[in-house]
Design a protein around this nucleic acid. Structure first.
Lengths: 202, 202, 202, 202
DNA sequence: AATGAATGAGAATTCATTCAT
DNA sequence: GATGAATGAATTCTCATTCAT
């Protein structure tokens, strides 16, 4: 990829996160990338195409790493740790990219093709959680809900750290991992489930 | 409050959630509220003032309910349930409002005064989690991290439901509550810490 | 005339002078007059009608005073003094009104009918200067030029006083009168054309 | 200076004179300059900045010519003629510019920096009239009043010519010069002050 | 008569996009 | 390929005018 294109993608990512899609101007992106306004149109068909390109690369990169780094067929806990590790290292490597995923998910300017690059990852995660629930390792909940809880833990930490209430460090993310696991793991049946709230799941 | 002002606030909330701040136009808001464009400026000093007004009302309403409905000094679990219930019923009553809180939190157009209305709630929640951690009911983590985990559970469910992957119903939210509690609750010490993942926290 | 109408005319005069026609808003005029916006339309057909009304009253008042206070058929110098006195006392009584005449003379929003109210005064002044020139009291110049010189003296003093460079007082206006008279008076013929500029009068 | 910028300045000058600041629209200026609306903002920060730029150029040009063309230390009469000649040729070269100076002098949108470009000219003129009064060539009046009388003669002629009552020609301006000189020159003391009006200045 | 909330056309300004160089 | 001046449609905001009370 030409270097200017890469710089444009990076500048666009930053600015879209900071100011939103409609709040970011093309000349602004060009300036941050150190190129002329017109150059943006050499590499991208327009602003909408640009944001989709950014999103596709970010999501595609994450999906690819999940596909490569999560061991198929491994035991649930090992897979969980691999999944979490992929998200963690991705988030730590580029905080902006995570925020981008968070914010630009279902906006009107996001094309279906862009969302499609996430499909393999969605399937992978769904399979993981479905298998875990079936095995009794996870709570007997729909996989989407289990995913929502784990993703929520990650995004929650990320959001709070962006608000300045939390450091965004590996240490914090490791602690969050414990919470995320507990959120989805089937409670131990041995003891009288003392920490359960409300109706006990007996 | 004049009826037109209320309709404008509601229309603005909806549209800002759907299309973002910069992606929403004033005539659009006016049209949805059933008033003329100029009328918007009769009630709000400008677009920026309007979005702040919406955010302040939403956050203020939620903060107020927390202040009124969370029993001071009650036991941690009861407080947790009250907190969750406030968020749940708020989110169910106005799904848009929760999305609004999620999206428009630290944008450049949000004034510090607007964020200030959330301060009492932040304090209340911090106190709760600090107390719970001190009592050994919660994991020994910074209150902000505990808050992030619980908030993450809620926002995660909400986000997935907006993506169409999950229903946004009381039933789902009740299930999420179990997960949220488990995420922050101190693991039972009796058994050999079976829920711990990776390094044991010993 | 209803008191509100009078207050509106006065407020309009002030504001049009301060900020120009297009720079003044109807609600602003109403506020300064202490009435509601809608009331303006009870007394005037619109903004354009209002400015014409103001101009007609100011010019008409001045024209009327000239007609009444300048003695017909008197000697030129006496008439000159009467004319100057009318302008002086008018200007001192309402500085704003003079500025109004100065600024709003040939703007696109001034109707021909409005300008027509000045006709009698123009005729009166023209007759005066024509007569004075014919009698050899004034320089042998077109009456319009003589008028321009006298009016220029008055407006010059007024403009400089509005700029803060000069007091706008009877004393200053009296001194200006000497200059205005000298500007138009035929130079004494005794010496060899001593008032000519350029060639030395020696 | 780019040609488009020059055309914009010229178009703006014309239109501001014709219709006033608030009565002139930006698209109108652009159209007269033969450029697109947006182009105006390429060269000027906004309408207010534009009018100040026009005023500064006009006043600066005139002030520059005065500084260059009025001989320092020359005799009063020669200086007077030089001053009048600068104003005359300036006014004849660009009638609109003189009207612009006349109208847009102390409006709320004129920045102090803009007025500051006239300072050197003000000082030059003030020195001239102070010196002339001290030498007994001019009437013993404040320099500002002498300036007002001379400027009044010029502006008076100009205003009447804009009203269609007078041609705006070198011939008329030459005649006005005689009047302007007489307005400020000390009256000849030899004869019994026959041109004095009212109280004799003895 | 008087009000002032409501209107919507019109103004200033911005910015995605193009294109001559 | 690269540029950035130029464009004009779209946006925010204003304000003359109306009209129900």
């Amino acid at each position: 990829m030409p270097e200017k294109q890469a710089r444009l993608l990076s500048a666009a990512l930053d600015l879209f996160v900071e100011k939103g899609f409609h709040g970011t101007t093309i000349p602004e992106i060009a300036r941050r990338a150190g190129v002329a306004t017109g150059t943006v149109y050499l590499y991208f068909d327009g602003k909408e195409r640009l944001v989709n390109e950014v999103l596709a690369r970010v999501k595609g990169g994450l999906a690819g790493r999940l596909a490569r780094e999560v061991p198929r067929g491994a035991d649930i806990r090992a897979q969980f740790e691999a999944i979490w590790e992929v998200f963690t290292s991705f988030a730590l490597a580029n905080e902006r990219a995570l925020a981008f995923c968070d914010l630009h998910n279902h906006a009107p300017y996001v094309a279906p093709e862009t969302l499609a690059v996430w499909e393999p990852a969605r399937t992978l995660l769904d399979d993981h959680f479905r298998r875990g629930a079936a095995a009794g390792v996870y709570r007997p909940l729909p996989p989407a809900l289990l995913r929502a809880l784990v993703a929520g833990a990650l995004f929650g930490v990320h959001k709070f750290s962006r608000a300045g209430e939390l450091a965004f460090s590996r240490e914090v993310l490791d602690q969050a991992r414990e919470g995320a696991w507990a959120a989805v793991a089937a409670p131990p049946v041995t003891a009288s489930a003392p920490t359960s709230v409300g109706r006990s799941p007996t």
